[in-house]
Design a binder for these strands. Structure first.
Length: 304
RNA sequence: GGUGGGGUUCCCGAGUGGCCAAAGGGAACAGACUGUAAAUCUGUCGUCUGACGACUUCGGUGGUUCAAAUCCACCCCCCACCA
């Protein structure tokens, strides 16, 4: 795991290539990125391309249409299934991605909250539109003071989520949180791949230019024909959203590129903050050499 | 050369006598994070100070005023149009 664009996939691929060849355990790659699941944006979300995916089995990439929603809970279930299957087939699964919450849900569990009826969610969204998040936060304080105290009144997304869960399940969000399993069922080695932001930023810019050169615009306009709703889940990815604005004639290509880079950088920073707060990761630089050499304890997973 | 518009804090940009260290946005920095997470949200953001507060800013210089980013004069730059 690590911030976007720092070379996680490449390192994983390196493992997949080198080890089985020298008689080690076969390796497979499992996506842990909330955007790379989307079918319509393989390039813009930097999914491994066909030749890369040929190196070893890849799972959970590019299977979801733009209008479909993904979620941490969903992901945890799907990834757990893939891991079980991979183990059964003798593969060593390598999780690659930068979506901290997804990885956390998979490894540490997530509250077993049943799905909430769409109509209920919609109603809270409408109330948030009409009354504003702080008003709903006050309401939440009356029913779930514990959780309300943890979030900011302006945090509409969390306020409405807590309220819809409360209404949909009859239990407070904080009660559900207490039901989280919490222990990790896997023997995991966590590797953080990263660079300081100052070093990462120019790489992110270069990566955007490369995406544009390889047809990001075409990808976005095809995606727009398949799903023209800018609010659809698939369109919320960085790059996707900005290209949509460009295609809609709202901004110039230069502005698009600039926004795209700014947003990507800000995102990388958020990821860094998240991973900083997580328990110990083995941090490596992507350019420091093959992973096995850098991470003590990795080798034992790779041999048979 | 003439006419009109303009020069504001890192950037964009509001502000036309006191309530202005100066709205708002962006960037930056720090942070939060349990089914939207490439999302959502928070704090800081002229200098010094732990804080009260003090000090220096709105192209330049000089003036008017108890008080100027805001008014006046001259000057310097930019843009548009006319020549």
């Amino acid at each position: 795991m690590g911030p976007t664009g720092c070379g996680k996939s490449g390192l994983a691929l390196g493992l997949a290539q080198d080890f089985p060849a020298s008689g080690g355990r076969p390796v497979c790659v499992i996506n842990a990125d909330s955007r790379q699941v989307y079918r319509d944006f393989p390039l813009i979300t930097a999914q491994p391309d066909a030749s890369e995916q040929n190196v070893c089995p890849h799972h959970l990439y590019g299977f979801l249409p733009s209008e479909s929603k993904m979620s941490a809970g969903n992901y945890a279930v799907m990834a757990a299934e893939v891991i079980a299957r991979s183990h059964a087939q003798g593969f060593l699964p390598i999780l690659v991605g930068g979506t901290g919450l997804y990885i956390k849900s998979l490894l540490e569990g997530i509250a077993p909250i049943p799905p909430v009826e769409a109509a209920i969610s919609r109603r809270w969204q409408e109330r948030a539109d009409a009354e504003g998040a702080p008003a709903l936060h006050r309401l939440l304080s009356e029913h779930d003071p514990l959780y309300a105290a943890k979030i900011h009144p302006n945090d509409r997304q969390r306020v409405t989520r807590a309220l819809e869960v409360l209404e949909g399940t009859g239990k407070a969000f904080s009660w559900w949180h207490a039901q989280t399993a919490g222990s990790c069922p896997y023997d995991v080695l966590k590797i953080g791949v990263g660079l300081p932001l100052e070093e990462l930023t120019p790489l992110l810019g270069a990566r955007i230019d490369k995406m544009l050169a390889r047809g990001a615009l075409e990808e976005a306009s095809v995606a727009r024909e398949l799903c023209g709703d800018a609010k659809a889940p698939g369109w919320s990815g960085i790059g996707c959203a900005e290209l949509y604005q460009y295609l809609a004639g709202e901004i110039s290509l230069d502005e698009c590129r600039e926004l795209w880079l700014n947003h990507t950088r800000a995102y990388a920073k958020r990821q860094l903050t998240w991973f900083k707060g997580q328990e110990t990761l083995e941090w490596v630089r992507p350019d420091a050499g093959p992973l096995v050499k850098l991470v003590p304890g990795l080798e034992k997973y790779l041999v048979n």
